[in-house]
Design a protein around this nucleic acid. Structure first.
Lengths: 349, 349
DNA sequence: CGTGCGTTGCAAAGCGCTTTGCAAGGAGCA
DNA sequence: TGCTCCTTGCAAAGCGCTTTGCAACGCACG
């Protein structure tokens, strides 16, 4: 213990105070064997008075379970990941489990390793892993898969097989977004997609293609600056478009801002659809039309999967749970203007 | 271990593989006693090949330290608390500590108890506690204070003494916000303060009073609906005002929305200043003028305080670290209109 | 009054690791 | 060659708990 803090009581000390053996104290606590009611009551009173709680380290050494799970998210300050975290935490709590979390974002490989190490050294009984475009050590992950209770949330990692996954219906989300623009009458649409290697990116783009198979697809990273640059290059090259399908809300927000800075109005000149429904999406002006992913529910479901297996001592499956998404229509989309596309430069061919 | 997962190797098994005793393996790992280089190399190779990591439970049982700290926040999905969490986590990582977090919000008292229990059962070596207006068990907290390594972040709890605290300069923040409105020329200002019992509320209101000692002060909770109701009652009673000093951004956002719904324009008719600088503050329109609290820094500093004491085995101080705040001027504030206050109803006295 | 059974407590082993006391062996020196 | 000293490995204790084997006791029954 740290300087100045009293050492907690041990079970043996409680036993001595009660005039019994620590076996008896343990049985009073666990109820796994009958104990004389009078004795039990005396022991309980002493435990209560002393504020005694069995040391968790000794318990987990004995039981082989830490009652802790891990959660790795790219960035806890991102409202979408925070929603997942909340879902995971509240579910874990219901199972009497604690959650150790890691905001892996600006992490070097060493950090990832360290957190996956929590699995190896049995600090945690299982892990909910929310992937990202950050270069994680896929090999490390593959080494863990199948050997430890592991669940992927949000992002499916096809190159790490046999890990159960909770994701949303990215394909349908893409479809819904595209259909919305198509129904509004848009015909010239560009796609500002997320990072190439991500499975979710691929799926969303596939969904977009259901209505705009020939749309120009530009890949970038999930941040506003990247989106702004993409918009610049679009505008700079005189590409004609009245609608933007964004890979997520960050891209959408970056695009809206950039379009407005370039003198175009959203949605009058250009309609923009996002993906995720982060907090800002509903709060910004124009409020963003987007595809809502059930973040908290994803967190809940993935934790549930993990904890179910842990507490029932079952093997983990390897199937993908797909949660439905929802189109949220707000103010960033409208029918295209009748006149020539305002993004088209006169001097372009 | 859970079904289907192999049991991790023990140090004894590594020792057997290497043809040495586990003492030697331990010394190879810790370096606390010299080991024959050849032996050490052989042992290390086997450890590497087997992917062996010492079981953390056994380690902490032995050492009395779990290398884990706790973090209690009211709501992890709130961008301000998420910033604190990020700061805590990144600092803990630097100290090779893990963070167990609890989003205490919609929590019954039992939940709070459970998480404070992590201290008692030594699952965590210390705790960063971010208070809120939620009724926590102050008695429980008081029982812990001084007996366990504990730090308060963001909210000072004067009724739980001798706990080191990292807060921001709420008084100065109040002052800065008030001065800003005053300098713009506002004279009729109302205060939509946070919950009464909070120390931060009191301080901010004191700061506001430096420039508007006679302002009407209404207390509510830190959410938009509460703020909307307060605005309604102000408007309904024909109170004249050209500026609003809000207890935090949520209140400010709720107020702005409500004012706009009531046909008033921000900032043309009414100026609004928030507090915190949450993500939405900068993204909404009109972008919110607010007082920025250094959330991540608060997280860092409080974790630093805790981990410093833990790793150096020092007693914890009990002083309050006050971090500076900053006025961020955006678009929700402007000089008052020359004409009569638009919030004043004709039929009011 | 003796046998048998159910009840309730204790002692001891063991979870996987760290740490300490010892001892075997080698090197250095006289 | 004989002595000390240092190096390096082993055995064993102990961290705080759970669990199991055993024994003592009381009771009902024949």
């Amino acid at each position: 213990m740290t300087a100045g803090f009293e050492r907690p009581l041990t079970m043996g000390e409680i036993a001595r105070l009660a005039g019994v053996s620590s076996t008896t104290v343990s049985h009073v606590l666990s109820g796994k064997r009958p104990v004389n009611p009078a004795t039990a009551e005396r022991v309980r009173a002493i435990i209560e008075r002393a504020g005694y709680v069995p040391a968790s380290a000794a318990r987990s050494l004995q039981s082989g379970r830490s009652l802790l799970i891990g959660l790795v998210v790219p960035d806890i300050t991102h409202s979408f990941f925070a929603r997942i975290a909340k879902g995971v935490e509240e579910t874990a709590r219901a199972y009497d489990y604690g959650v150790i979390f890691c905001s892996s974002s600006q992490s070097d490989v060493a950090t990832g390793r360290r957190y996956l190490g929590l699995l190896r050294d049995q600090t945690i009984d299982g892990l909910v892993y929310v992937g990202s475009d950050v270069a994680v050590d896929r090999d490390e992950l593959r080494g863990l898969a199948g050997r430890f209770p592991l669940v992927f949330a949000d992002e499916e990692l096809p190159d790490v097989p046999s890990v159960p996954t909770v994701a949303c219906d990215n394909f349908d989300g893409g479809r819904l977004a595209a259909r919305h623009l198509h129904e509004l009458g848009h015909r010239k649409v560009v796609v500002l997609a997320g990072p190439v290697p991500l499975h979710s990116t691929t799926e969303r783009v596939r969904g977009f293609a259901e209505f705009f198979p020939n749309a120009l697809v530009l890949h970038g990273s999930f941040d506003r600056d990247s989106a702004a640059r993409l918009v610049d290059s679009l505008l700079g090259n005189g590409v004609a478009f009245t609608g933007v399908l964004a890979g997520n809300d960050d891209i959408a927000i970056g695009a809206v801002r950039r379009l407005e800075e370039s003198g175009l109005r959203v949605p009058e000149d250009v309609s923009v659809v996002g993906f995720d429904d982060v907090e800002l999406a509903g709060g910004m002006r124009p409020a963003l039309t987007t595809i809502r992913q059930p973040g908290q529910e994803m967190g809940r479901r993935s934790a549930e999967l993990l904890l179910q297996a842990l507490t029932d001592d079952l093997p983990m499956g390897d199937d993908v749970t797909v949660l439905p998404v929802e189109l949220i229509v707000r103010d960033s989309t409208a029918p295209p203007r009748a006149s020539a596309s305002p993004t088209e430069r006169k001097e372009s061919r």
